[in-house]
Measured scan of single mutants.
Amino acid sequence: MDVFMKGLSKAKEGVVAAAEKTKQGVAEAAGKTKEGVLYVGSKTKEGVVHGVATVAEKTKEQVTNVGGAVVTGVTAVAQKTVEGAGSIAAATGFVKKDQLGKNEEGAPQEGILEDMPVDPDNEAYEMPSEEGYQDYEPEA
């Protein structure tokens, strides 16, 4: 019985440690998101679009440190934060509304985080759909 109880105690310690790591990862992701939003706020009209992409990228980098179902929630929060940063930029006159959601080359930025393969159960990952990809044929 002692062996059984000791095993359960060790398992509990492992769960607590994993929860603490997840909590730490979420806190880091939130900190990076805040950094990115402050970065966007300090940019001029020309830099705002690039700044919004930076927020998304920093958040995406930190999301990889967070495991399990938390990833889905962090990704949703990050996307809403990026959308909010863009709205703030438009409201303050840093950028025109028609410039939001495009990178410096004018290509749409939507789907940055949505296409990231995420499995809350950590069982399997699927690649994003290939609808947006084109076949590449090298020139002879």
Rank of each mutant, 00 (worst) to 15 (best):
138 P>M: 07
15 V>L: 13
63 V>P: 01
19 A>I: 08
54 T>E: 03
1 M>L: 00
97 K>L: 06
104 E>V: 08
46 E>G: 02
97 K>G: 08
103 N>A: 02
37 V>T: 01
80 K>C: 04
131 E>G: 02
100 L>A: 12
30 A>N: 00
88 I>L: 11
80 K>A: 11
26 V>F: 07
66 V>D: 01
99 Q>V: 14
72 T>Y: 07
82 V>N: 03
74 V>C: 12
61 E>V: 08
81 T>K: 02
16 V>N: 04
76 A>V: 11
124 A>F: 15
56 A>H: 14
63 V>N: 01
99 Q>A: 13
12 K>T: 14
94 F>D: 02
2 D>M: 03
113 L>P: 06
128 P>H: 04
130 E>V: 09
136 Y>I: 07
85 A>V: 15
127 M>A: 04
25 G>S: 13
137 E>R: 11
102 K>I: 09
67 G>N: 05
61 E>G: 10
52 V>G: 01
82 V>Q: 07
124 A>N: 01
79 Q>F: 07
124 A>K: 14
30 A>Y: 13
3 V>K: 04
14 G>D: 02
101 G>T: 15
139 E>H: 13
94 F>Q: 07
42 S>C: 05
104 E>Y: 08
39 Y>S: 08
109 Q>E: 12
84 G>Q: 15
3 V>C: 03
80 K>I: 07
2 D>P: 02
112 I>E: 06
105 E>V: 07
120 P>S: 08
60 K>P: 01
70 V>Y: 15
75 T>A: 15
132 G>A: 09
82 V>S: 05
20 E>I: 11
121 D>T: 11
137 E>C: 09
4 F>E: 00
71 V>N: 02
4 F>S: 00
32 K>L: 06
120 P>C: 08
115 D>V: 07
48 V>H: 00
1 M>H: 00
83 E>H: 08
8 L>R: 00
46 E>V: 04
5 M>G: 01
128 P>M: 10
19 A>R: 02
39 Y>M: 06
12 K>C: 13
32 K>H: 10
123 E>W: 13
21 K>D: 00
105 E>C: 05
104 E>M: 07
112 I>C: 05
26 V>A: 04
137 E>T: 11
78 A>G: 06
69 A>G: 05
69 A>D: 03
67 G>W: 15
97 K>C: 07
122 N>E: 07
121 D>G: 13
92 T>S: 05
138 P>V: 08
25 G>Y: 13
77 V>Y: 06
51 G>P: 01
29 A>Q: 02
113 L>W: 15
9 S>R: 08
60 K>F: 06
49 V>W: 13
121 D>E: 12
46 E>D: 14
8 L>C: 02
91 A>N: 04
73 G>P: 02
80 K>W: 10
98 D>R: 11
130 E>Q: 08
132 G>R: 13
108 P>L: 07
5 M>Y: 02
12 K>Q: 04
69 A>V: 10
108 P>N: 08
99 Q>Y: 09
2 D>F: 15
91 A>V: 12
34 K>P: 00
75 T>V: 12
90 A>K: 07
52 V>S: 01
36 G>Q: 10
103 N>C: 08
140 A>Y: 11
43 K>S: 03
29 A>C: 10
16 V>C: 07
57 E>I: 10
36 G>W: 14
140 A>C: 04
135 D>F: 07
59 T>I: 03
89 A>S: 05
39 Y>R: 07
14 G>P: 01
108 P>K: 08
58 K>S: 05
30 A>T: 06
133 Y>G: 10
54 T>I: 12
130 E>F: 09
57 E>W: 11
13 E>V: 05
140 A>E: 11
24 Q>N: 12
125 Y>W: 10
5 M>P: 00
8 L>Y: 01
99 Q>W: 14
35 E>F: 10
2 D>Y: 10
94 F>I: 15
24 Q>P: 00
50 H>M: 13
76 A>N: 11
75 T>W: 13
133 Y>E: 10
120 P>E: 06
65 N>H: 12
93 G>M: 04
37 V>D: 00
59 T>F: 14
108 P>I: 11
2 D>W: 04
27 A>H: 07
131 E>W: 06
118 V>H: 06
133 Y>P: 09
81 T>N: 02
63 V>T: 02
113 L>D: 15
25 G>H: 15
101 G>W: 13
16 V>I: 15
127 M>E: 10
140 A>N: 14
74 V>S: 01
51 G>H: 05
7 G>S: 15
41 G>P: 00
125 Y>S: 07
60 K>H: 12
95 V>K: 10
32 K>M: 04
98 D>I: 04
131 E>V: 13
132 G>W: 14
119 D>Y: 07
65 N>S: 08
137 E>V: 05
87 S>C: 10
79 Q>T: 11
120 P>Q: 08
140 A>G: 12
48 V>N: 00
3 V>L: 07
125 Y>A: 04
130 E>T: 10
90 A>W: 09
47 G>R: 11
110 E>R: 13
132 G>F: 12
22 T>C: 07
49 V>S: 11
129 S>L: 06
2 D>E: 02
93 G>F: 03
131 E>A: 11
109 Q>I: 07
105 E>I: 01
11 A>F: 09
64 T>H: 12
17 A>M: 12
73 G>E: 03
25 G>W: 13
40 V>R: 02
62 Q>C: 08
69 A>N: 05
2 D>T: 04
109 Q>V: 11
80 K>Q: 03
42 S>D: 03
32 K>E: 00
67 G>D: 01
92 T>V: 13
69 A>M: 03
57 E>R: 08
57 E>K: 08
10 K>N: 03
104 E>W: 08
10 K>L: 08
3 V>I: 07
117 P>N: 09
30 A>G: 01
140 A>R: 10
40 V>D: 00
61 E>N: 12
89 A>D: 02
6 K>M: 08
140 A>D: 10
40 V>W: 03
130 E>W: 13
82 V>H: 03
65 N>P: 01
37 V>Q: 00
119 D>Q: 15
4 F>Q: 00
67 G>E: 02
71 V>G: 01
117 P>L: 05
39 Y>F: 15
83 E>R: 13
53 A>D: 02
33 T>I: 05
34 K>S: 01
125 Y>T: 10
90 A>S: 08
78 A>N: 02
107 A>P: 08
33 T>Q: 00
73 G>W: 10
85 A>Q: 02
58 K>W: 14
93 G>N: 05
44 T>I: 14
68 G>M: 06
69 A>R: 12
8 L>P: 01
42 S>Q: 08
3 V>M: 07
91 A>T: 05
136 Y>T: 05
35 E>N: 11
50 H>Y: 12
54 T>K: 09
52 V>Y: 05
130 E>S: 04
132 G>D: 10
16 V>T: 07
127 M>K: 06
14 G>E: 06
23 K>R: 09
65 N>Y: 11
89 A>N: 03
78 A>V: 11
73 G>A: 14
13 E>C: 07
115 D>H: 12
26 V>Q: 00
33 T>E: 00
29 A>L: 09
93 G>L: 05
57 E>L: 14
33 T>V: 14
32 K>Q: 03
110 E>F: 11
127 M>T: 07
30 A>D: 00
24 Q>Y: 07
120 P>N: 05
47 G>P: 01
57 E>P: 02
91 A>E: 05
44 T>Y: 11
13 E>P: 00
69 A>Q: 05
46 E>S: 12
